[in-house]
Design a protein around this nucleic acid. Sequence first.
DNA 1: GATGTTTTTTACCATTTGGTCAAGCCACGA
DNA 2: TCGTGGCTTGACCAAATGGTAAAAAACATC
Lengths: 210, 210
Amino acid sequence: MPQSVDARAEKKPSRIQLRNRRKILEAALDVFSQHGFRGATLDQIAEAAGLSKPNMLYYFDNKEAIHVELLSALMAEWLAPLEVMDPDGEPLEELLGYIRRKMQMSRTYPRESRLFANEIIQGAPRIGPDLNQRLKPLFDEKCALIRIWMQAGKLTPMDPGHLIFSIWAITQHYADFEAQVQVLMPDSAVAWDTAMQHVETMFRTLLSAE
Amino acid sequence: MPQSVDARAEKKPSRIQLRNRRKILEAALDVFSQHGFRGATLDQIAEAAGLSKPNMLYYFDNKEAIHVELLSALMAEWLAPLEVMDPDGEPLEELLGYIRRKMQMSRTYPRESRLFANEIIQGAPRIGPDLNQRLKPLFDEKCALIRIWMQAGKLTPMDPGHLIFSIWAITQHYADFEAQVQVLMPDSAVAWDTAMQHVETMFRTLLSAE
DNA sequence: GATGTTTTTTACCATTTGGTCAAGCCACGA
DNA sequence: TCGTGGCTTGACCAAATGGTAAAAAACATC
């Protein structure tokens, strides 16, 4: 009996499969993050991956499968900085550490940031379920934690949810709107350093105001 | 001699032209803001506008012309809240007023916000020149103004450019990432009100820290 | 080196998409 | 009411796009 598509997904993948799937996902990250789902073409992705289009479709059933797998695989990585935040740590330093990690992510993985940004802007049509099942619980958990910290007088009291939104908005801004930042601050080499300093100082001021 | 395309652009447009061009741009705003440039199709726009595709292409030379005109026409409207900021006003109130107007814009015109977001995320391939010629001067001017205010001890000193980025990032976040916000704060009716309060309080704290 | 399996390629297809063209419609002034 | 010129339409087209089928090639295993 020939190996079916389902079997392929369940059995342990060969070395070639591993390599090619990784090449495809890497190429897809490039193309999807730049053009969004509908704007990306299979030909573009295949060329970027160095494979023929049918060869690529041997590894993924269709365009959407590539996109979904990419988002799904990246989600964990993307949430990691928030997960790390420790209930037993020093509140202000925990939050500032999170902010620093988030800035570092935007700097190191701007494509990933833009991939998610594209998907969310367009209404999260393919990642919607994941948002509910993976992001929401984590968000609620950390909101509760921050609220406790604030009630203990360790942080300036405010709405924890909107605080997290602010952190996301600002940190991701530098990755998602890089084109604009570069126009307005052409001296981009130093922009990242000043940006990181600004963001940290800003939230430190905000969170430790009496 | 029949009226040429160029003449059409220069002569004063008829009532029908005005009406149809507006219908097209309105429809294009809907479609482009949801799918980005490459993801939007002329058929979608034409249907949303209630016109046939050839009829639409009678008013605009091609897809790109619609997109460019849309962005260009909206740019002024988009920059207005920043332009209003008055050098002779009370610094803190001027900035908070700007922030309030920007939040109001995101609330009232989320499609416009997403239209720009899509374009910038994808590297601003079509609006690049406009950023340099229209946004950059205004940005520099207001940065200088804020710097003067800070040097006069009226505001907490910080990098004015990054301050503006922070304002943009947070205010636009609620429009651009609305899908995510709605998942994480399902009680969306009140989310806007609490958001506006949070953002204002946040920047007031930040800007008036000693 | 024969044999079964996985991987790759070649050729192809249906649909979608951006765009054209010529003919017809219609509003409006003479 | 009759042209005339702006407006609209239906039919059409070439290229791009997502995807398939089947044969060929490469590979692993004996």
